[in-house]
Write a protein that binds this DNA or RNA. Sequence first.
DNA 1: GGAACCCTACTCGGATACGGCGTGTCCGAGTGGCTTCGG
DNA 2: CCGAAGCCACTCGGACACGCCGTATCCGAGTAGGGTTCC
Lengths: 162, 162
Amino acid sequence: MNLKNQVEWALHCCAVMCSLPDGRFLSTKALSEFHGVPKEYLSKALQSLSRAGLVETTPGAAGGYRLARSPAAVSFLDIVEAVEGRKSTFLCANIRANNPCRPRGHCDDGPCPIARVMWQADEAWRRSLASVSLHDLSGELARTVPGDVLARSQNWLLDRAG
Amino acid sequence: MNLKNQVEWALHCCAVMCSLPDGRFLSTKALSEFHGVPKEYLSKALQSLSRAGLVETTPGAAGGYRLARSPAAVSFLDIVEAVEGRKSTFLCANIRANNPCRPRGHCDDGPCPIARVMWQADEAWRRSLASVSLHDLSGELARTVPGDVLARSQNWLLDRAG
DNA sequence: GGAACCCTACTCGGATACGGCGTGTCCGAGTGGCTTCGG
DNA sequence: CCGAAGCCACTCGGACACGCCGTATCCGAGTAGGGTTCC
């Protein structure tokens, strides 16, 4: 019951893409070196984001990624689901149907009450993630990270991207 | 990012233990046959519940499991955490520390803002699970499952347990 | 008839095997920008 | 001097290897109750 580390990487990549000037892209290479993670594997996470329509890509030299929408329109849930998938955490095998005392054809329709509780918790998790956008995160970062570190990071990335 | 199927089994086992008369125990064998799951493996889930103090055991013949507390005092979260563990679903590797522009010793204290959002969602998930008790589940079952099926299941289990 | 004994059924923990998936790497196809070469 | 061809860097997708963990099974130690046997 762990989220994959690609989720963390994708979130950090989206975070640095928030303050990307128009017309610029961040390459996988720059992002991987900036975060200290393997380039080829990080590429998988970015491809997931691309498949989900959260980021745009440009092929070729000076290519790379940038956000496809405004930071305020991208929630944590969007990113987590892009990487992790949209299926529920709890998989109901409907084992109540194995009850030897259950008449045939009974309990086959309608969700299992136990599954319903688990799915409600899943919903709460998703709601919480959906309530925070990349814009909110940017604000939080601007408040907690010294301005010079932010600016230097920005320049460091732009130096290495098209 | 899936909960193990043992979670589902443990929840169903706890559900049937709710209406167990005082002084009686349900054996692993009975529980496994009732739910149609492998006995030896279900035993692992029950052992997890036992380790967490949610159920009591009696060794020997006519032995088995019963709830250690009243159904109202056992939440879904208790059961899920007993089987799945108590650690968060999001593991923060603190990759922001790899930022080449970050001055040494900076950002090392205080949680990563991204991790904080993920942990808040985790908290929401846990709160949702903690808000439903086995007592609530029993009520829901009594409302949705026909009384004769409940009674017959009860007797079926008691016939096979001490 | 009562007590001691054995047998059985169960819990509990460890050991083991297998498969799937997360993790990580490598490679080839496609594409766009830059450099270089030729007219 | 200018256009075209080649080169390079990057994206994207697939293939592959490795290791961990969830799944599943088996076995032995310990224990309590019931049946059996012996006094």
